[in-house]
Structure formats: structure tokens, C-alpha cells
């Protein structure tokens, strides 16, 4: 059984008498431990797919199974609980809570898991170390650089050890050097911690760190052959 099974997914938006269907009867599977990158033209439906798999959006038809559970049938509240336990979401713009410190931002998902304060602290510290921000634990988002903020965002997404991490253009807002750092970090999540990742990106170089590369073209997934093997 694959970790993620997207089956016959259609997503339609109705605008006046116009109908847009970025996804039409799309199928996709992601195996446990894979790092899948997804490219495609702007507006081709990449974010839409990611949001459906992350359980923050609902398809017009079709179903999605994650780890054997049909998440598309969950109630709103059940879906939220499922996300807390199973999904880490890395946003393009980090989206940290401005009133909370780096530590508190990373702690947020753990609050939902009923862990003791000590366990939470232990795990936040491990996550902070993983993103090399131990010395910034007490800083507020406005006191951090863009790259540091994104690393806090990554720590927040991985701290609860989710089944799946999704990232929507995680380097879209960053300069080249910082992009390198972030990509290296994501790759480590996959190779060292064995996490399953699904990353949307515009950047062909970024896509190269993935173990499997897809393109979304007119609602269909196409395996894209790597331009060069391995990382550049």
C-alpha cells in the first residue's frame, strides 16, 4: 500500500458561468520515504493538489487515502486532528505567528498532541538543533532573517514527526544562498530522518534534490526525466 493514494481527483472552481478545473480525474501515488518534487506552469493546480493531500481543502470528486485512511471523508474537526498528527506544512512565506517566539511557534503542533511540557521542550530543542537555530529560540519572527524564519517554519513542520511533509514553493521568496541552505535541510529530512516529502517548486534546480520528479501538465502528472543526475 502506498502512503498517499490520490484517486480520480477533480477540483473545480466556478466563477460566474465559467468553470475552471485545475485537476481533472488526476491519479497519483507517493511511497513512504519518497521525496517527490512537483513542477508545472503557474496556475496548473500544484498548490491545489498539495492542499488536498494536506487535508486543508476538499476535492469536487474523487478520494485521497493517506496511510490507508480515506481523509476525503473526514469531518472538519476529524480532519484537523488528523492534520495535527500526520501533516507538516511548509509555506512559501513561513507564516509564523508573530506574537510567539521561535520556540513557541515550533511548539504549536505539539500542544495538540497532549505531550507534557518537558517532552515538548525536548522535542522543540531537537527541532531547533536540526535547523541550527538553538541560539534563536527566544527570538520573535520580526527579529529573524527570511531564511531563519523559513527554518523555523521547517522545524515547526517536522517537530511532531508527521507522516507526510508538504512544502509549497518553500524557497520561492529566498535568495540563492539561502535557497541552498533550505534545500539542503529538506534533503536531510528525507535522507537522515526518513521523512516523506512532497514539494512544489518553480525552480528546476530545487527539483533535483527530490528522489522523484513530477510535472503537472493540463491536469495530468508526467514523470520528468532528470536533466542531469544528482545534485548540481
Amino acid at each position: 500500500m502506498s502512503l498517499v493514494e490520490v484517486q480520480q481527483i477533480t477540483k473545480e472552481y466556478v466563477k460566474g458561468d465559467q468553470k475552471i478545473a485545475p485537476l481533472k480525474d488526476a491519479d497519483l501515488t507517493v511511497e513512504r520515504g519518497e521525496f517527490v518534487s512537483l513542477m508545472g506552469a503557474s496556475g496548473s493546480g500544484k498548490s491545489t493538489l498539495l492542499n488536498l493531500i494536506a487535508g486543508i481543502d476538499r476535492p469536487t470528486s474523487g478520494q485521497i487515502l493517506v496511510d490507508g485512511e480515506v481523509i476525503t471523508q473526514f469531518s472538519r474537526t476529524r480532519l484537523a486532528r488528523w492534520r495535527a498528527e500526520n501533516v507538516g506544512y511548509i509555506f512559501q512565506m513561513h507564516n509564523l505567528v508573530p506574537v510567539l517566539t521561535a520556540f513557541e511557534n515550533i511548539e504549536l503542533p505539539l500542544l495538540l498532541l497532549g505531550l507534557s511540557a518537558r517532552d515538548r521542550e525536548k522535542r522543540v530543542n531537537i527541532a531547533l538543533e536540526a535547523v541550527s537555530l538553538t541560539d534563536r529560540a527566544d527570538h520573535y519572527p520580526r527579529q529573524l532573517s527570511g531564511g531563519q524564519e523559513q527554518r523555523v517554519g521547517i522545524a515547526r513542520a517536522m517537530v511532531a514527526n508527521p507522516t507526510l511533509i508538504v512544502a509549497d514553493e518553500p524557497t520561492g521568496d529566498l535568495d540563492a544562498e539561502t535557497t541552498e541552505q533550505i534545500l539542503a535541510l529538506l534533503q536531510r529530512l528525507n535522507t537522515e530522518l526518513g521523512m516523506t516529502l512532497l514539494m512544489v517548486t518553480h525552480d528546476p534546480n530545487a527539483a533535483l534534490i527530490a528522489t522523484r520528479r513530477l510535472r503537472l501538465e493540463k491536469g495530468v502528472f508526467v514523470e520528468s526525466t532528470p536533466v542531469t543526475a544528482g545534485r548540481i
Binding site: I56, W82, R83, Y89, N95, V97, R156
Partner: peptide, 15 residues
């Protein structure tokens, strides 16, 4: 509005 959406994405329920 955005912050609440982020919290919900993380897994906070509407409640």
C-alpha cells in the same frame, strides 16, 4: 484571518 488559517493548517480545530 491568515494566522487563524495557519493555526488550522497545523491542526487546530475550529473549536
Amino acid at each position: 484571518i491568515r494566522e487563524h488559517a495557519v493555526l488550522q493548517t497545523i491542526g487546530f480545530t475550529g473549536w
